[in-house]
Simulated scan of single mutants.
Amino acid sequence: MTEKPKGLTRRQLLVSSVTTLAAGAAATAQAATLTGTPKWLPFDHNGPMHYDTPGWQFFTAEEAQEIEAIVEQLIPADDLSVSGKEAGCAVFIDRQLAGEYGDFSRLYMQGPFTPGTEPQADQSPLVPRERYRLGIAGLSKYCQAQFQKPFSALPAEQRDKMLTDLEHGTVELEGIDAKLFFQQVLDNTMEGFFADPIYGGNRDMVSWKMIGFPGARYDYRDYIAMHNQKLNLTPISIIGSSAWNRKG
Rank of each mutant, 00 (worst) to 15 (best):
I136T: 02
I136A: 02
A137S: 13
G138C: 02
G138I: 01
S140C: 03
S140E: 05
K141L: 11
Y142D: 03
Y142G: 00
C143Y: 02
C143N: 03
F147Q: 07
F147H: 12
K149N: 03
F151N: 04
A153R: 13
L154A: 10
L154W: 13
A156Y: 09
E157C: 04
E157T: 11
E157P: 02
E157Q: 13
R159N: 04
D160E: 11
K161E: 02
K161L: 08
M162W: 01
M162V: 12
L163T: 06
T164W: 06
T164Q: 09
L166Q: 03
E167D: 08
E167F: 12
E167M: 13
E167H: 12
H168P: 00
H168N: 11
T170D: 13
V171Y: 07
E172F: 12
L173W: 15
L173R: 07
G175F: 11
G175C: 13
G175R: 08
I176N: 11
D177L: 10
A178L: 03
A178K: 06
A178V: 10
A178S: 14
A178G: 05
L180R: 08
L180T: 14
F181H: 09
F181Y: 09
F181P: 10
F182L: 09
F182K: 11
Q184G: 15
Q184Y: 12
Q184L: 05
V185G: 12
L186Q: 07
L186E: 13
N188P: 10
N188F: 10
N188K: 15
N188Y: 11
M190W: 15
M190Q: 15
